[in-house]
Design a binder for these strands. Structure first.
Lengths: 210, 210
DNA sequence: AATAATTTGTTGCTTTTGCAACAGAAAAAG
DNA sequence: CTTTTTCTGTTGCAAAAGCAACAAATTATT
């Protein structure tokens, strides 16, 4: 059930001589990949932070997903039907392993252990992706900016087992992640403060309720 | 890549003597299951339609996901951290196969083919769940009711290869699915009609653009 | 260390969305 | 075939959210 696939434990087995995987490094703000139908890219982020973003016609940016170490992403998870391009951007220096999804099921010429373990772990890995996405849907279906903020804080708090939260990205990004206007979100943060729900010190939030 | 797991093809192999699976029938509006942490239920809807819904403190109902034939659902896909209960409700008469997720990996006493095929197909099955959820996230991140409606129509249109759409659920449900107020959505539908984007005849929509 | 770029914080105004309420149409139940 | 229930369609008003613009603070860059 719990995701016992630990990339750290088997990354040592990764051999650069492996014929199926490509390892790439990206600098901050660099484009990691752009989702194009039917290329079936499957990526593992082994270092850094990145975002899957969409820019719409009105100039709005939306952070569809936020990836950190050991997260998986790629076209293979998307049936790209949207009009808007989806791109993955490095938020800081990133290291990424890139596969074609179908190649994961076949052993590479060197029969390396990396494939074997990855292939075996794939179901658990994808399952953890599902739970993550479901959490995301739960958050996005909240009706008001207030509920989205409280929901997000609550998730962070549960994850870090602390009432004091250091936001993993800027407030500007948070607004794009919650899919709301930044200034409206700032206003709502102030109201949450005024109403005694939170304490706010720059990008550090302390939850005062429950 | 494409989901080649077809339940119809192997449902014949399903034997009621299988020790790991439970088959249940639910009537319209009946509660199929309620998501409770750590029970690891994994379900396959083999007939009917159902919704995963959340009722919040303000009395709002949200349709988190809509399931139709061959869709999979269950607690195993959720890390239930939310305060609000999530329940799966039958929208019409439903037949459901219920597993405990961990049991899928073990053969049942009868060593039935059902398990074997299900177990082998699991990665693809879960992967298709991911693409579905990503599409859902794409839709929910749209900023306005108008964009949500157009986005939803566009998805339906792509799926059915037709500009004329028969909504798979009521307008009341659609509002709950898009996470917007029903009357506001009705108003927006009228505006879309007035602006010449759509034609609307009850619950049948015709797209006039592109 | 100085300059440039980005992010935070705030506000007035506009637009969109939500809420409440109700009548008519359609569907389900008896 | 009636009656009851649910769904559609509409509206006035209130509340929330978006937009635009700008100053101050913070963070990067040279």
């Amino acid at each position: 059930m719990n995701n016992n696939f630990n990339i750290d434990n088997f990354i040592r087995d990764f051999q650069s001589s492996c014929h199926k995987v490509t390892k790439k490094t990206f600098n901050k703000n660099e484009l990691i990949t752009s989702y194009i139908k039917n290329r079936n890219q499957f990526c593992i982020l082994i270092a850094g932070n990145a975002d899957l973003v969409r820019y719409d016609l009105n100039g709005n940016r939306t952070i569809i997903e936020h990836f950190s170490k050991n997260d998986i992403f790629g076209e293979v998870f998307y049936s790209v039907t949207t009009n808007n391009e989806l791109i993955v951007e490095a938020r800081e220096k990133c290291e990424v392993l890139i596969y074609l999804y179908d190649d994961i099921h076949n052993k590479c010429r060197n029969n390396c252990k990396f494939h074997q373990i990855l292939s075996e772990s794939l179901p658990e890995l994808i399952l953890s992706k599902v739970t993550k996405l479901n959490t995301r849907v739960e958050l996005l279906t909240k009706r008001s900016t207030r509920d989205k903020l409280l929901g997000y804080f609550s998730l962070l708090s549960t994850k870090t087992l602390s009432k004091t939260l250091f936001l993993p990205f800027s407030l500007t990004d948070l607004a794009d992640y919650l899919s709301v206007d930044r200034s409206a979100m700032m206003r709502e943060l102030k109201l949450l403060k005024d109403d005694g729900f939170i304490e706010k010190n720059g990008n550090t939030i302390t939850l005062l309720y429950k």
